[in-house]
Design a protein around this nucleic acid. Structure first.
Length: 492
RNA sequence: GGCGGCAUAGCCAAGUGGUAAGGCAACGGUCUGCAAAACCGUUAUUCACCGGUUCGAAUCCGGUUGCCGCCUCCA
């Protein structure tokens, strides 16, 4: 497969370091508040990466960290009058709840920064031994000597000269150079502190990821990534300090996903234009949110809106509707195995169309193999749905018919599974999707009552009364569908 | 100011040299007591704009405009 590598700015053939195994480190969250939909995009993206790699047969070790000690957590702890550990614990639990609600499984390893202080200090020792780390003043912060590392700026495409002219680099008298960044922060009175050769303190932001990634995945590993906004300075610094410490390449492929936006602007805490995962999930089913996140390419910006989510909801109905019909047909009629139609002219599909169904898995996989093009992969699924719907329209006793349906069903569920979609019971999911809206002007019980009365009227062929009820419900955004299994309703 | 990215139909969105996937919406038809769902058909001679390369460009090169991200904590 090919992946776009931020380091080289091009797609590259993915070759894992060790045959058949992949190590992935995804930057997680800083636990000082509930996470928003941008964090969900990140989590779902890496989940899909992992699922696809596993589907291909790779054994994947997936690491996602928690930054559980930093300035923002300390500030939050002070505001809330709680110990920082409690704040961190609370938001770790909150994150895990959100992930569970979204259907994102836990990573294999979810290390916390505060439990890897010794590993970080070890890296700083190595950096000091190689002349990359220095303490600004006795008992003060420890910095990384950026200019000593030749490749600095390579990942983010920055040149040292340009960066200096950039206005907003913090000026700190203790630094040898404004570009140098903190490895270890000397603690102020009242702040949490760990002992170190440089005095009591706590880690800088970047060092934790170097330490935890190398501990669990080795000094050189395959995949590392996060949001595009982490490229600089976080990943640039991480790369520099890691390679300076080990003298070896740190990461082979850097993956960065685009950011979630609202009105084309980045969703972020500081702008205040964010929706938490909890808020969004209160209004839309998790699978709708997942579909929305996966339905465009991961490196593009993705604009959040109610309309976009509503569209995702309708699109999911389109995917689940044939699944429900297929199940009904395949389960009820006990259509067992049997050959898939091969011969020309069979079963009401043109040769070319049958070919499309036959190559669905292959094309899906190729789309995913091309830098994880989930939008294209989903497009193929929709194409298959149209063909399957057509088959369902024209029941046939031809020998290959049942086989085609069965394979269609299996493919949709299996391929959907790579994206963690289409795994729910179709009939149940359709009910949820159709009846989702909370602010109904009428209760489900009342709707059922009216449906009963209408059914009675229909039995008596009293079309006037039946239509009156249909219209009465339509006025409250309830749409009725008469099916062979009875009348069902949904929200407009 | 520096670095990077993006501009494809009413909306969302694939497509990186060979003649525009897919979804939503809309309209017409089939089906239906009426509907819905589903199916069939229609909806970009054209890919921000201007030049260039090429037999051929949405795709490559140069320029222009607009938007976004990073350069500061941020997925």
């Amino acid at each position: 497969m090919q992946l776009y590598n931020t380091l080289t700015r091009q797609k590259e053939i993915f070759q894992p370091l060790r045959e058949g195994r992949v190590g992935l480190y995804a930057c997680g969250v800083t636990v000082y508040d509930d996470c928003h939909l941008g964090h969900a995009r990140s989590a779902v993206f890496f989940e899909v990466v992992v699922r696809y790699l596993r589907w291909l047969g790779f054994e994947v070790t997936w690491v996602r960290n928690f930054t559980d000690i930093d300035d923002k957590i300390l500030r939050r702890a002070q505001e809330d009058g709680k110990p920082w550990e409690e704040v961190a614990e609370h938001y770790i639990a909150s994150f895990q709840e959100d992930m569970a609600a979204l259907g994102v499984p836990p990573a294999q390893i979810e290390p916390r920064a505060s439990r890897h202080i010794e590993e970080m200090l070890e890296i700083i020792r190595r950096l000091a031994a190689r002349g990359f780390a220095y303490q600004g003043e006795p008992g003060g912060d420890v910095y990384f000597r950026v200019r000593r590392f030749p490749g600095y700026g390579r990942l983010s495409g920055q040149r040292l000269a340009d960066m200096q002219s950039g206005a907003r680099i913090e000026v700190d008298a203790a630094k040898e150079d404004p570009l140098d960044f903190v490895l270890w922060k000397a603690s102020k009175p009242g702040e949490p502190a760990w002992p170190s050769p440089w005095g009591p303190g706590r880690p800088g932001w970047h060092i934790e990821c170097s330490a935890m990634a190398m501990k669990y995945l080795g000094e050189t590993f395959d995949l590392h990534g996060g949001g595009l906004d982490l490229v600089f300075p976080h990943h640039e610094n991480e790369l520099a300090q890691s390679e300076a410490a080990t003298g070896r390449p740190f990461v082979r492929y850097w993956l960065h996903h685009g950011l979630l936006t609202i009105d084309q602007e980045k969703m972020s805490k500081s702008l205040g234009n964010f929706f938490t995962v909890k808020e969004v999930l209160a209004r839309f089913p998790a699978e709708v949110v997942r579909f929305f996140l996966i339905n465009s390419h991961y490196r593009s910006p993705l604009d959040f809106s109610d309309a976009a989510l509503a569209e995702a909801e309708t699109a999911l109905v389109r995917l689940y509707t044939p699944l429900a019909r297929l199940r009904e047909r395949l389960w009820a009629q006990g259509v067992g195995g049997g050959a898939v139609a091969q011969e020309e002219g069979l079963v009401g599909l043109a040769n070319e169309e049958r070919e499309k169904l036959a190559t669905l898995r292959e094309r899906f996989s190729q789309a995913m193999a091309d830098d994880l093009n989930s939008a294209l992969a989903l497009g193929y699924l929709f194409e298959a749905v149209r063909l399957i719907n057509r088959l369902l329209e024209q029941p046939s006793a031809e020998p290959g018919y049942a086989g085609l349906l069965r394979r269609g069903y299996q493919d949709l569920v299996e391929l959907g599974g790579v994206l963690n979609l289409l795994q729910a019971d179709p009939a149940e999911m359709l009910r949820i999707l159709r009846q989702e809206r909370q602010d109904l002007a009428i209760s489900p019980a009342e709707i059922e009552e009216l449906i009963q009365r209408r059914s009675q009227a229909r039995r008596e062929k009293d079309w006037v009364a039946a239509d009156a009820i249909r219209q009465q419900l339509a006025a409250k955004d309830i749409i009725l569908e008469d099916t062979p299994q009875g009348t069902i309703w949904r929200v407009k």
